[in-house]
Design a protein around this nucleic acid. Structure first.
Length: 274
DNA sequence: ACTCGCCTGTCG
DNA sequence: CGACAGGCGAGT
């Protein structure tokens, strides 16, 4: 569910609430996720550790404590919430970190496609899920990476944007939006696009991501995404094509279409995307 | 380069 | 009841 703007929104609510705080206790039960979650490991390694920073690369959060580090991914349905007790624990809460300062971090993930992995700080760089990522989509070198890969790739451009090894952070919503804004059809082979159009796509993707961050992310009508402070994002009202099948395109009036490709819904306007 | 599986929940 | 969901990776 969460893409770069949603993860960044979580990061920005986590940072002021918890940086500088020290872990006082851990609870949770072992559970199978994308990577197995082992609260006992957290208990032995994280209790007493002070949180130094919360970083992000693509859709991954990187929490650096003194002595230990954690990499978190929210998968499709993950949420991180800050609570001040007393609070009821929501269903599917797999890990709770209690801080000395009185706040709690709750990691909730019904579908369990996410993970919360603990490791030594020096292991973060070589941690497999992170090591395989391309540059973060907001970094200056991301546009360059897109150009370089697209030039020699026959994949549909939509698939290339979703490939986290090319650039990290774009998911199904923002791929659709960036392609619509730059007037590119999602099915176009990457290598068939001119340098100019690819450069434009890079700029547009960056724009969309920044606007979405400014809006606090996208909370669809199911209310699935909320930040760590419980607030919803309001970028959904600004989506041009995603989740708008059948509506009139704001730019050309044509009906927005949905097509299923590789098991994912792809939204686009055939009137103004070529 | 695609399909499927991993899970639970919601909607039509 | 089936279809579908902001992700990802193991299989062909």
């Amino acid at each position: 569910m969460p893409e770069l703007p949603e993860v960044e929104t979580v990061r920005r609510t986590l940072d002021p609430a918890l940086v500088g705080c020290r872990v006082a206790g851990v609870s949770g039960r072992p559970v199978k996720m994308r990577l197995p979650l082992d609260p006992a490991l957290w208990e032995s390694q994280a209790v007493g550790a002070r949180l130094l920073s919360v970083g992000r690369h693509g859709k991954y959060l990187i929490c650096r404590f003194d002595r230990v580090a954690a990499v978190l991914h929210l998968g499709m349905s993950g949420q991180i919430k800050i609570h001040t007790p007393p609070t009821a624990t929501a269903p599917h809460t797999h890990l709770v970190l209690r801080f000395e300062e009185g706040r709690e971090l709750h990691f909730v993930d019904p579908r369990r496609f996410g993970f919360a992995a603990l490791m030594a700080p020096e292991q973060v760089a070589s941690f497999e899920p992170l090591a395989r990522l391309g540059p973060d989509a907001l970094e200056p070198e991301a546009a360059e990476a897109l150009l370089r890969t697209a030039r020699r790739s026959k994949v549909p451009i939509h698939a290339l944007l979703l490939d986290q090894g090319v650039l990290a952070g774009i998911g199904n919503i923002y791929a659709a939006e960036a392609l619509h804004r730059s007037g590119i059809h999602p099915g176009r082979r990457a290598s068939s696009l001119s340098h100019g159009r690819l450069a434009r796509l890079g700029e547009t993707a960056r724009e969309v991501l920044l606007e979405a961050i400014a809006a606090g992310g996208t909370t669809l009508s199911d209310g699935g995404f909320v930040a760590a402070d419980g607030r919803q994002g309001y970028f959904a009202v600004r989506l041009a094509v995603y989740d708008r099948e059948g509506e009139a395109c704001q730019r050309c009036g044509e009906r927005v279409r949905r097509r299923v490709l590789r098991g994912r819904s792809v939204y686009f306007c055939s009137g103004c995307q070529h």
